[in-house]
Amino acid sequence: MKLVTWNTQWCCGLDGVVSVKRIIEGARAMADFDVLCLQEIACGFGGMPGRPGDQPAEVKSLLPGFQIFFGSAVDEFDANGKHQQFGNLIASRLPVARVQHHPLPWPPDPKATSMPRMCTTVTLSCPDLGALRVMTTHLEYYSASQRLAQARALRELHVEACALAAAPPVPDTIGTPFQAKLHAAQAILCGDFNMPATDAGYDEIQRPFRDPAPPAGGAPDKRLQDAWPLAHPGRPHDPTFRLFDRTYGPVPMACDFVFVSDSLAPHVRRIEVDLQTQASDHQPVFIELTA
């Protein structure tokens, strides 16, 4: 399975040009991906730099054969009644069984600019790896307290999903909303976490929890873990932000991560960052998992 994740900055490059096509081409240059996770996708915000259009529709037109799932963290109407949306998108050519859009905590922080954040999750079937969840998110940049609350919520979403996979609800009649669901303990969590690997939120996402169905003689704890050190032991993360544009700080940093559940960790084969593209103010990340 090949996945690319990218904070697109509403597909606005460092040249000021907004181009969804350039983002898709850049992702395809990294890999013939099965799943594409994009953050900062806009619709209806014509006043933003570069005047982005209906970007979910543009992505759909550029990816025939993919299912497109757009989750709006911001979903509102302006004074003239125009619908405005801003959030995350997952495109998958693997069969998808379920889609969930989870609002993340937005506790008050009157000293910081902030906006709602969310996590889009698709449960899909991968021929080599089985059922798994792909979760993509974009956490708060300006408020550390909000970001930590959101990191904790992401971990709790994974804990709950693992518990449901171990003890699913009693199914009801096929064709009703209570019909049996595909539950998956395996997960990939990716996106722009707006924090370095030294942040408390980074550790919180990876904090172990009790396995609801431990195998005989197996480890009693489960956790999400950063895939980068699995593929590059002892090597610092490649930077994914502020590599070319120093508007938000003088030093390049890594804040776009891919976390995998325990059972997927042995299947991580590659994880790389495109250190050349300037199609966004973030660098895309590619991960490959094999059976």
Results as ranks from 00 to 15, higher is better:
Pro239His: 06
Val258Ile: 15
Ala227Leu: 08
Leu38Ser: 05
Leu62Arg: 06
Val268Phe: 12
Leu264Thr: 03
Thr120Phe: 13
Val96Trp: 10
Ser114Gln: 13
Ile287Val: 14
Arg210Ala: 08
Gln84His: 13
Pro236Gln: 03
Phe257Asn: 01
Gln225Asp: 00
Gln276Val: 13
Ala42Thr: 13
Asp203Phe: 15
Pro239Met: 01
Thr198Cys: 05
Leu14Pro: 05
Phe286Ser: 08
Ala185Glu: 14
Ala73Met: 05
Thr247Met: 11
Ile23His: 02
Val17Asp: 12
Arg147Asn: 07
Glu40Ala: 13
Pro168Arg: 01
Ser145Lys: 15
Glu156His: 14
Asp75Asn: 10
Ala97Gly: 06
Leu94Gly: 06
Leu230Tyr: 09
Asp199Ser: 13
Ile90Glu: 01
Thr176His: 00
Pro229Gly: 01
Val159Tyr: 03
Leu62Ser: 07
Ile68Cys: 13
Gln84Phe: 10
Pro171Leu: 00
His237Thr: 01
Ala165Cys: 04
Ala57Gly: 14
Leu182Trp: 08
Phe257Tyr: 15
Tyr141Ser: 13
Val59Gly: 02
Ser143Met: 05
Pro56Lys: 08
Asp211Lys: 04
Ser92Glu: 00
Ala167Thr: 10
Arg235Met: 10
Leu3Asn: 03
Asp226Ser: 01
Gln67Asp: 15
Pro252Gly: 01
Leu89Asp: 01
Leu94Lys: 09
Leu189Ser: 01
